[in-house]
Amino acid sequence: MSTALRTPRRPAALALGLAALLVATAGPALAASQTATTAVAAEVAAAPVVANPGGQVNLQWDAVRLQMTATGGVAPYTWSASNLHLGTTINPSTGLISGVTRGSGTRTVTVTVRDAAGATASTSFTWRVIRDACPRC
């Protein structure tokens, strides 16, 4: 073989060797970067979701207990609710809505959860309280 044919192969072999060296050196850093990106994507994708309990109907002066639930996010959760019927409250630690319904009417209740990472989610549902025609019969 002539040396003219060997000369072009040496730069190609050198380039392949250099590329292999760069990949081997950057491999752990690249893998760590990809792992961090995957972790951030998983955290973003795992925002909390509040389960909707559906429409609620009670009579006036009923004792109520409605447990709200959430999935995803980072525990512990903090719960809040707006537009609850008079006499009912939500436990900020457990998400339990309880109390005695006073008054009557239909309300749109919004329940919000905030996870430990600060992500929030909410759901809304209607809650109808019917005035009993004969509360002491």
Rank of each mutant, 00 (worst) to 15 (best):
residue 48 P to N: 07
residue 48 P to A: 09
residue 48 P to Q: 05
residue 48 P to V: 01
residue 48 P to W: 04
residue 48 P to L: 02
residue 48 P to S: 05
residue 49 V to D: 01
residue 49 V to C: 00
residue 49 V to R: 11
residue 49 V to A: 05
residue 49 V to K: 00
residue 50 V to H: 10
residue 50 V to G: 12
residue 50 V to P: 10
residue 50 V to Q: 14
residue 51 A to I: 09
residue 51 A to N: 04
residue 51 A to T: 14
residue 51 A to W: 01
residue 51 A to D: 12
residue 52 N to L: 11
residue 52 N to W: 11
residue 52 N to E: 08
residue 53 P to L: 14
residue 53 P to C: 11
residue 54 G to A: 12
residue 54 G to H: 15
residue 54 G to S: 15
residue 55 G to R: 15
residue 55 G to W: 02
residue 56 Q to R: 15
residue 56 Q to W: 04
residue 56 Q to K: 15
residue 56 Q to G: 04
residue 57 V to W: 03
residue 57 V to G: 02
residue 58 N to W: 00
residue 58 N to L: 02
residue 58 N to M: 00
residue 58 N to Y: 15
residue 59 L to Q: 06
residue 59 L to W: 05
residue 60 Q to V: 01
residue 60 Q to L: 00
residue 60 Q to M: 05
residue 60 Q to A: 07
residue 61 W to C: 02
residue 61 W to S: 05
residue 61 W to M: 04
residue 61 W to K: 07
residue 61 W to V: 13
residue 62 D to W: 01
residue 63 A to T: 15
residue 64 V to P: 12
residue 64 V to Q: 01
residue 65 R to G: 07
residue 65 R to N: 15
residue 66 L to V: 14
residue 66 L to P: 14
residue 67 Q to A: 07
residue 67 Q to H: 05
residue 68 M to N: 03
residue 68 M to V: 05
residue 68 M to W: 07
residue 68 M to H: 07
residue 69 T to S: 14
residue 69 T to K: 11
residue 70 A to G: 02
residue 70 A to Q: 08
residue 70 A to K: 08
residue 71 T to G: 06
residue 71 T to E: 05
residue 71 T to C: 01
residue 71 T to M: 06
residue 71 T to D: 03
residue 72 G to E: 08
residue 72 G to C: 12
residue 72 G to L: 13
residue 72 G to S: 12
residue 73 G to E: 08
residue 74 V to T: 13
residue 76 P to S: 09
residue 77 Y to N: 03
residue 77 Y to T: 08
residue 79 W to K: 04
residue 80 S to K: 13
residue 80 S to I: 13
residue 81 A to Q: 08
residue 81 A to D: 09
residue 81 A to H: 10
residue 82 S to V: 15
residue 82 S to F: 08
residue 83 N to K: 06
residue 83 N to A: 14
residue 83 N to M: 06
residue 83 N to R: 13
residue 84 L to T: 03
residue 84 L to S: 09
residue 85 H to P: 13
residue 85 H to K: 00
residue 85 H to W: 02
residue 86 L to N: 09
residue 86 L to Y: 07
residue 87 G to Q: 01
residue 87 G to I: 00
residue 87 G to F: 14
residue 87 G to K: 03
residue 88 T to S: 10
residue 88 T to G: 08
residue 88 T to K: 00
residue 88 T to A: 08
residue 88 T to N: 02
residue 89 T to G: 01
residue 90 I to W: 13
residue 91 N to H: 14
residue 91 N to S: 14
residue 92 P to R: 01
residue 92 P to T: 06
residue 92 P to D: 04
residue 93 S to W: 03
residue 93 S to M: 12
residue 94 T to E: 05
residue 94 T to V: 04
residue 94 T to R: 04
residue 95 G to N: 11
residue 95 G to D: 03
residue 95 G to F: 06
residue 96 L to V: 02
residue 96 L to T: 15
residue 96 L to M: 13
residue 97 I to M: 15
residue 97 I to F: 09
residue 97 I to R: 09
residue 97 I to Q: 12
residue 97 I to E: 11
residue 97 I to L: 14
residue 97 I to V: 15
